[in-house]
Design a protein around this nucleic acid. Sequence first.
DNA 1: CGATCTTACGGGATTCGTAAACATA
DNA 2: TATGTTTACGAATCCCGTAAGATCG
Lengths: 302, 302
Amino acid sequence: MNINSHDLQVFLTLAQEKNFTRAAARCGLSQSAFSTRISSLEHALGAKLFDRTTRRVELTPDGEEFEPFAHQLHADLSDVVQIFRDRAARRRGRVAIAALPSVSAGWMPKVLSQFAKRHPEIQLSLTDGIAETCASLVRSGEVDFGLSTLDDAEDLDKQLVAIDHFHLVCGKNHALLTKKKITAADIASFPFIHLTRNSSVRRLLDAAFDRVKLKPYLEANYMATLAGMVEADLGVTIVPSLSLHQFIRPTLGTRVLQTPRISRPIYLIRRRGRTLSAAADTLFNQIRLTDFENSPMRRRRS
Amino acid sequence: MNINSHDLQVFLTLAQEKNFTRAAARCGLSQSAFSTRISSLEHALGAKLFDRTTRRVELTPDGEEFEPFAHQLHADLSDVVQIFRDRAARRRGRVAIAALPSVSAGWMPKVLSQFAKRHPEIQLSLTDGIAETCASLVRSGEVDFGLSTLDDAEDLDKQLVAIDHFHLVCGKNHALLTKKKITAADIASFPFIHLTRNSSVRRLLDAAFDRVKLKPYLEANYMATLAGMVEADLGVTIVPSLSLHQFIRPTLGTRVLQTPRISRPIYLIRRRGRTLSAAADTLFNQIRLTDFENSPMRRRRS
DNA sequence: CGATCTTACGGGATTCGTAAACATA
DNA sequence: TATGTTTACGAATCCCGTAAGATCG
């Protein structure tokens, strides 16, 4: 009463060959085992499917009726197995990740293009959002994993993959760039262009400059705005290395901060105890094992 | 690597219960056997379908992806089995038969209405045609079986179910009806209304009246035409009992032929060695076992 | 430490292949 | 009689249940 893919294969082969011996051979079965299978399939359906003599094998009306069903069922079963085999072989699938805007813009393009080249059939989805958004998307399962800083989230599994160092950005000929050592007080003496308060970058800066208060000139939502402001000499700013690419302009100068050394960890975060799909696992590991040799970030392995 | 309906059931139950012990109970399996089945299904698909600890069971992304497929496949498999179970139980199906026009009009209405009452879900199809048409429809498999006279067709299986006796039809007060015994010569002395030459009735009459030639007045294609002609006293005719119902009119008289006793056998004909569908088999047997007690035909069992 | 999943293992059912019996043209 | 299907039967395999082991909260 329980039909499986092999039964269907056996039926279809006999329907095509109309000869037990040949059909059995094609199915890699002995002729007797084949005969038994047909017989038990007939029993399972409660209908004779073939009229057979030693000379001729023909479908009965019931068999005729069953054939298209058998075809469909067999194809569906095979397709589903194939889909999951493909997924396992990274020839199919979908990966959704979430990452901080700076990570998304400054790092993921390279990562994803490399991944897409190696796994062209796998669909990719990237959501850029602030740390809280990333964590929440991971927690809900809407994304497979995230790339973000993370204060503390015990329900999530985090692996440090990079440390993002902060850089001073100012006009190309700004006085600060002439100094050998730049201190917090030096920076605080100039108007400061801030990022909005809900960003992790801003929170980090506020914490780093808790004693020597910065002189907030204005605050913006986008890095590109900051770049414009600094370019117009309205003030200076500090950005993580992952955002530096937006500040590489002839009119701007940048310098990695040394004395008030500010950095933030970038974690791969995922739901604790949850298995990743094969595709997600592959991207996860690709990122985890990234080599930062020629990168402004320092490489870290957990 | 061979998935069956039970595997899908097991998967779906666990996906719903999210607890091995309860799901196993619902499937009527021991918890360990259940666990093994899940595990081997995962192996067959090459993907982990559940993340499980002793406290929580959750679908993985792959499992999430598999669930709708499993639902669909399971429903399809069940449906197909159900369809064939229904067919076997005569709760579903189709029967197509072919029968001589006289059989179709004079006998089948009663037979089919009785069958339809007993098996309301089974679709019926009746093709009325001359003997050759019936034989050819049976031979090609377009109909399940036929009801017809049959000269000789060795490839077809025939079972005699009735003998159709021929009756004289003439005007109500026709001279022939006053005679005690009606001979061939008596009939031949009146103008005769013939059926068309390609009918089996006509062939039988021509054979019966090979010595005492009938006086052909005209020939028609339909019994109703004959009835009209005889009613207008243009002549007499002879028809099989199955067509008699068309000649029961106040103006007409009929008498079964005794001396030139003419009759034709009505056979159930089917392809030799071919199994009938359950529905067809039921109708076949209903016809085969018809009781002709109160019928102008004589009952015969083969 | 208690609830729950996995693994180990013996027994029973299923399925297989060989070979003999059976059937048809 | 030759070809081809079914049946008989012992062997291998698969699947189940019991019970012990492992693991998580």
